Structure formats: structure tokens, C-alpha cells
Computed example of a mutant assay.
Amino acid sequence: MKGCCLRLLLLWCLVPACQAVTLFTYRPGETPQDVRTVYTTALLELALEKTRPQYGDFRLASAPAMNTARALAELKKGSHPNFMLKMSYNPELETAGMLRGKLDVDLDIIGYRACFTRTGLLPSLTQVQNLTQLKQFSHGQGSGWVDTQILEANGFNVVSVGQYESLFRMVATGRFDLFCRGINELEGEWRAHRQLPGLAVEPSLLLYYPLPRFFYANPRDADGLKRVEEGVRIALADGSLQRLWLSHYGPSVTFAKPAQRRLFRLTNPMLPPGLLPAEQPRFDPILGDFITPPPLPPTGRQ
């Protein structure tokens, strides 16, 4: 009887249920209304599924809700296992020794910005024809967001705010003039906050500055980041990432009507040359299509 039980146990351990399961942690939205992380979590799951044959099973767990400043602190401390934090390129993270994936997982779309404002300011904003005129208007941004440094480097007055939800209330009540968002975020945020008195989507302006978004990880999670990066490459090569991108971001890009706006190009002085690989795909919202270089080969395990 004991021998039979032992044989059954050995057979059970040959099936996937007995394989090690790797835990990955994702960052949830700051509030129930915050949908910014939905695509990122879905992309993380897609990348892990793509690499299941090579790396085995996985489990996704949510970190506590937190703002960007706290998320960065948790990343540096290594508080959560395989905490994959999607962030804009940040030289401070590089200096702190954090590891960064090589691919812009948002495909350049977050750098195209349309703005929330207050209804009373709409007539003045529709008259803006150049950057000098645009710089007369103040901006609100979140604490810890690199957008603050980018906008200030381009000559804008920026108010930094600790709580994401407060930004919508403050722009609607005139604490600052513009709260500019990636056009992939605009529709979801408008639906979540359009009940705020005085809040409006400015319909005529489009800002652009290069703002690649990468997965960052604590150095102890180098193997986890390597797996995620490999999965992203596979998903780009077979087109599943682009399909996921369109399902999450496409409606908001359409809602923003980027081709009907006046485009103002800004610089991002924090980006070093050669940061992105030559094969990096991107989405051009003016053309309304992906600009896709030759296919990305899988990196393979080393």
C-alpha cells in the first residue's frame, strides 16, 4: 500500500501542478476610477503566457494601491517579488541601480498629450498658435512623474501634486490651467471624471515629447525581468501585443482625434541617444497606424 502511494506521488509530481510557480507583482490603479494600469497588467500577463513553455507556470499578484512616488520607493526597496513597474525613462532609477527592459511597451503613444482644462478657459486655448502662447498656461502633473521635469525644461510653469485624483479637481477649479494626458489615457479618464463641474477636454491642441515606457525591476528580480522582456519580444513578433494595444488604447486614441489637432513638439532632455533599439515599433496617431521595423527575433534564454 505504501509503495502504491509512493508511486502515485511520484506520478503526480511529473505533472505541471508540481512545477515551481513564479510569483510576479503588478501595480494596481491608485483608486477604483484609475484605469491607467489595466493595459500594463494585461501586457505583463501576455508576456508571461508567451514564455510559459520555457520558464514554467506563474502567478500574478497585486501590490497595494500606491501613487508613483511610493511605487518607486517600493521598487528600490524590493518590497514585492518580481515587481514589474512600468515607468517612463528615468535617469534617477538608472543611477539607483534599477534594471530596465529595452523596449518601449507603450509603442510611443504616451508622448502624444491632449489636455484637460476648465470650461472657462476653452476660448483662450483655441486661440493658441505657437509655443510662446502655450507657455502662458500653467500645467499640473503628479509627484514623481518625469513629465514635470520635461515640461519645466521646455519653459512651462508646472504644479506638482501628490494625489492622482486631485489633479482632475484642481484643473477643473483653476488651480492650474492644463492637465495633459497621453491620448491613450484620455477617454477612460474623461469617462471617470466628466461629472466634475467645470472639467473639459481641450479639443484643439496636441503636445508631443518622446516618452518611452519600460518595465523596471529591482536587481534581485533580474531573471523575472528577462522573462518579461523575452515575452514582450515574442508578442511583438507574432502581433499579439499590437492586438492587445489596439483593444486597450485604440478607442481612446480615436476619441482624442489627434489628426484634427495642432501639434506642438517638445524635447525630452533626459533621453540619452540610442536608448531604443533600431527595431522598436511605434504607433503614429497622425497616420493612424503602426510603424513597424523588421520583426523582432526572440532573445532566447542564456
Rank of each mutant, 00 (worst) to 15 (best):
C4D: 13
C5N: 13
L8H: 02
L8D: 08
L11N: 02
L14D: 13
V15G: 14
V15N: 07
T22K: 07
T40V: 14
T41S: 03
E45L: 02
Q54H: 07
Y55W: 15
G56H: 03
L60G: 03
A63Q: 07
P64D: 11
A65M: 12
R70H: 08
A71F: 01
A71R: 05
K76A: 15
Y89F: 11
Y89N: 03
P91L: 06
P91F: 01
E92R: 10
E94Y: 09
T95Y: 11
G101P: 01
D104A: 06
V105S: 04
D108V: 00
I110F: 07
V128C: 00
Q129W: 03
Q129I: 06
L134P: 00
L134C: 03
G140Q: 07
G144V: 07
G144N: 10
D147K: 09
T148Y: 05
E152K: 13
V161Y: 00
Q163V: 10
E165M: 08
E165D: 13
S166L: 12
L167M: 14
R169Y: 15
M170C: 11
T173M: 07
T173Y: 09
F176C: 13
F176N: 12
L178S: 06
G182A: 03
I183R: 02
L186G: 05
L186A: 06
W190H: 04
R191M: 11
R191W: 04
H193C: 02
Q195W: 10
Q195K: 10
G198H: 07
A200H: 12
P203A: 05
S204M: 09
L205F: 06
Y208K: 10
P210C: 06
L211N: 10
Y216R: 07
D221R: 02
D223V: 07
L225T: 02
K226W: 12
A235E: 01
G250M: 05
T254Y: 04
R262V: 10
F264V: 12
T267Y: 03
L271H: 01
G274W: 03
P277S: 13
R282K: 12
D289Q: 15
I291P: 05
I291A: 09
I291E: 12
T292V: 13
P298G: 07
